[in-house]
Simulated assay, not measured.
Amino acid sequence: DVTNISSLGGAFSLTVASFLAYIGIIWWASWYPGAEPGGGGYVAQRMMSAKNEKHSLFATLFFQITHYAVRPWPWIIVGLSTLVLYPNLSVESKGIGYVYAMRDFLPVGLKGLLVAAFFAAYMSTIATQLNWGTSYIINDFYKRFIKKNEQEKHYVNISRLATILLMVLSVFVTLFISRISGAWQFIMESGAGLGLVLILRWFWWRVNAWSEISAMVTPFIVYPIIKYNGVEFPNTLFYLVTITTIVWVSVTYLTKPTDEKTLLSFYKKIHPGGILWKKISDTLPNVKSDTGFAGMFINWIIGVVLVYSILFGSGSLIFGNIGSFFLYLILAIICTIIITFNLSKMDWSENQ
């Protein structure tokens, strides 16, 4: 059965459709906090805090390597160890092996420190999301459309109320989620199809606010319908992404474009290039558009190879497969040389 090869186990336990959803859709089509396609608040804050564009690029590359190639290994090593230490755990209970390892192997001091770290991580995440959500509600909705000219004290009080309501709503939602993976899946499903519009807004002048709004709303409407019909994650992504894309593209053409003054101002400041901005660039012949998209695409592909080379190379070294380690090391060095060479040819003078 080519659609279900789960009998082989391991990496082959996914259906072909599920594999295609993970490898071909999620990375570009679904919005996910911290990994937003087309850039987002998390990534943008890091980049804007850098000294200049060159520093922000290398800092972002460094983050990708440490986040995806270095950080997972402590989790993986502990997880694999628990499979050996606690072989009698059922498949559904494998995750509790982490807790058992903490209980059985950490000394009292480190055990308390780890618990405190868990609480700190939980509270920082909750605080971030509540403040983030409240800022959207107050600044982007309430302050713009409900009460436009109130004193700051009024907005502070309303923001406190909004924070409480968001927390109550969050607690209510958690009653329907039995596993943390369910929350991740729901986030990816509720943002399915949004990724493409977040990417294209930088490359196509026609994308407007209604494009993004429709892309954000559509998954929430479609999601309960396909779930009711028995479609499970990640197969839900095929339906969500397709329908959401059709909707936001249709809305884009059915609504008025962003006013020309705003587009011209944006183009002068950001100077995006590409054929999809030609209508605007033709009206501003003195503004030099960004170029070198082919080189950027090559750097992106090589960057992906670099991250995976370090990830798998680290694993090979940890598990004593020295031959594979050196192969991945050589590949990582080659990728680093190519990226460094390509970036050295860029003109950074305007960004210093």
Rank of each mutant, 00 (worst) to 15 (best):
I77A: 04
T336A: 12
S18N: 11
V222D: 00
S56E: 07
K279E: 14
N299Q: 14
K261E: 14
V241L: 11
G95P: 05
T336H: 00
I310P: 03
N139M: 11
L276Q: 10
A332F: 07
F312V: 05
K269M: 02
L166M: 10
L85F: 09
F186R: 10
S30C: 15
G323K: 13
Y253L: 08
A162M: 13
S90I: 11
K51H: 08
F19K: 12
I225H: 01
A69V: 09
G315L: 10
F58W: 15
K153V: 07
Y267S: 06
F220Q: 05
S250P: 01
Y100F: 15
D259V: 06
I5N: 07
Y136L: 13
K345W: 03
G40P: 09
V305S: 03
S135M: 11
P219T: 06
Y86W: 05
S211Q: 02
V231H: 04
V305H: 01
Q352K: 14
W132V: 07
L175A: 09
I76R: 03
F19I: 07
S170Y: 07
G79A: 13
I158W: 05
Q64T: 12
I25R: 08
G295M: 10
W348E: 03
F12W: 11
W73K: 05
A121W: 09
D104H: 07
N351G: 00
I330E: 05
D347S: 05
L327R: 08
I275N: 06
N149C: 04
F325C: 10
A294P: 00
P219Y: 06
C335S: 13
P285I: 10
F319H: 12
G313E: 11
V173T: 11
A11M: 04
K279A: 12
L14P: 00
C335N: 04
Q45N: 09
A35W: 07
Y308G: 00
A17W: 14
I298M: 05
S281A: 15
F319E: 08
N342G: 00
A44Q: 04
N286E: 15
L196V: 09
R179K: 15
G303P: 07
I77D: 03
T128D: 13
L264F: 11
K269S: 05
T218M: 06
K111A: 12
G320V: 14
D1W: 11
L175H: 13
I23E: 10
S93R: 14
S309I: 10
E152G: 00
P72C: 08
P224T: 06
